[in-house]
Amino acid sequence: MSTSATTIFSPETAARFDRLVTLYPVKRSALIPMLLYAQDEIGYISDAVVVEIAQRIGISELDVRSVLSYYSMLRTKPVGKYNVQVCTNISCMLRDGYGIMEHCKKRLGIGHKEVTSDGLFSLEEVECIGACCWAPAVQINYDFYDDLTTEKMDQILDDYKAGRGKETV
């Protein structure tokens, strides 16, 4: 499938997918990046995403779903516009990662894997994100925040609420 009127993706993403499948010795190597970029644009892996990616690569929808269910960053339900991912693994735990998690729960009024009623934030406790020496650390979508305190966390959430947060895609 080439970029055409039938795609559910933006022209930029469709063009990126056209290129991705040509980069590797086999098309299927593009599957995981495509799922992640599709999720970035659509918000989650919908049935329509599965159908189009399966067609683009030339594999079955079942093959796509089998891979999709393996990787923890890929999801089949929407999350908040800003997905707050709090690391509580060992290095963060030792520097009050759980305190940050509890603070976010209270502040946002939601628990692990829940979304605020306005759809702005979701919260998730995650495994090690590779920021151990700057713990405790949080990722909001793809942006890292480290050396956190509850005060810093409040400031960061306030910034996102006011539309001033970083947005790396």
Binding site: V26, R28, I32, P33
Partner: peptide, 22 residues
């Protein structure tokens, strides 16, 4: 290439599977 969240993929043969889209 980018992964999508899986510690196991750091193991070299699992890494190859992941790069092959599995």
């Amino acid at each position: 290439q980018t992964g999508a969240g899986a510690y196991e993929v750091g193991e070299e043969s699992a890494l190859m599977e992941s790069l092959e889209g599995k």
